[in-house]
Every structure is written in C-alpha cells, then in structure tokens.
Amino acid sequence: MQWDWEFTAEILPKMLWATVNTLMAAGIGYVIAAVIGLLFALAQRTPFRSLTFIVREVVEFIRSTPLILQIFFVYYVGPEYGLWLSPWVAGMIAIGLHYAAYLSEVYRGGIESIPKGQWEACTAINLTMAQSYRRIILPQAIPPSIAGMGNYLVSIFKDTPMLSVIGVEELMQAANAVGGQNYRYLEPYTIVGVIFLIISLTAASAIRGFEGWIRRKLGME
C-alpha cells in the first residue's frame, strides 16, 4: 500500500476542520470538568459527613469505570426517561463528569497542601468561609495543582476520539467517514495520529511553560 499524497491533500482540509471540533470538545469538556471538579472537591470538605461520603463514592465510581461506557450510558439512558440528548450534549456531560472526578482529586491535593496556619490566620482576621477560600486558600492551592490540571487537559484531548462512538463530529469520526467513503484507511488514521501527536506535545510543553510563569508571577520561585 502506497501513501497517496493527492488523496492526503484532498482530505486534509476536512480533517483540519474536524480538528477544530475536537479542540472545542476538549475545551468545553474541560471547563465543565474544572467547575464540577471544584464542586466535588469542596463538597468533600464540608462538615456534612454523609455528603462527603456520597461525593467520595461517586468520584471513586466515575474514576474506576471506563469513559466509553459512561458515554454510552449518558447517551442511551436519557431517552428511557424521556430525555433526548444530542450526541454533543451527552458527550460533553460524560467527558465533563469523568474528568471532574479526576480534577477534584487534584484540587483536593492542592487544598490539603495548604498549611494549617493559613486557615488559622483566616479565622484570626475574621474572614468568612467564602473569603478564606477565594482570597487565601485557592490562590495558594492552584499553582501546585497546575501541572496536574494541565496533564488532564492533555488527557481530555486524547480521550475525545471516544466521542465518535455516539456520532460527535470530531477528528476520529471524520477519519472513519473519509475512510469508509474511499476505502482508504491509511491516510485518514495516520493524519489523525500526527495531528494528535503535534497538538499534545505542543500542549504539554506550553503547560510546563505556563506553570513556571504562574509560579514566578505569584512569587513562589
């Protein structure tokens, strides 16, 4: 089988457009994960024991089951209860919740790394709970979490091909479609691999740079 450059040139624009969708899926999924993950992390620090327990179990459950099944579950279970979700919505919920569970662990690690004295200082200067988190705790908890958060950004990007199983029009889906139409799988799948490699390597080094920048910015070096 020979590599066909003409075919490559023909399908490349289509693949690059699909890449935009992939990046969008990863971005939206990550924002959902970052917000819900923070809620998961904070819920585990409330004085309500049962809430902590339930959230802990939910996080464990999400973390130890395959994302692909979760995607199927969210997509197919809704209609049984009269709730029709589009592939995009179902995919974003599934991937967002999955990574929320992972990110909550990162936040938790960050928050727990704050020395007890910081909390005592908050109490001493009479800050409310919300103020303590917003002004004192989170700004210190986030920089050490950045490496972990960045890794999950790259992971979420690499997991977006799974969304193709429910028909989200991203890169893998585009490759499947192009391959099926032309009976040529060599070029589409190889292009997908190359695009993934380029983006994830760039992202990984960008995150390393960003981590250094934010540490300097906050005077932690």
């Binding site: 997991d159 091909p161 193709s164 799988y185 060599l186 799948y189 190889t190 993934f196 490699l197 994830s200």
Partner: peptide
C-alpha cells in the same frame, strides 16, 4: 514513550486494526 503517550489509544488501536493489514 512520547509517541504512545502523545497519540490517543483509540487512534493507535484503529491504526493497528485497519492500517496494518494494508501492509
């Protein structure tokens, strides 16, 4: 290591399954 960590598992799986037979 960089290659296998940088590309997605699903892509690798499909590549092995659909592209390798072509060779």
């Amino acid at each position: 290591v960089e290659f296998f960590r940088g590309t997605s598992l699903l892509v690798q799986l499909f590549w092995l399954f659909y592209v390798l037979p072509l060779f």
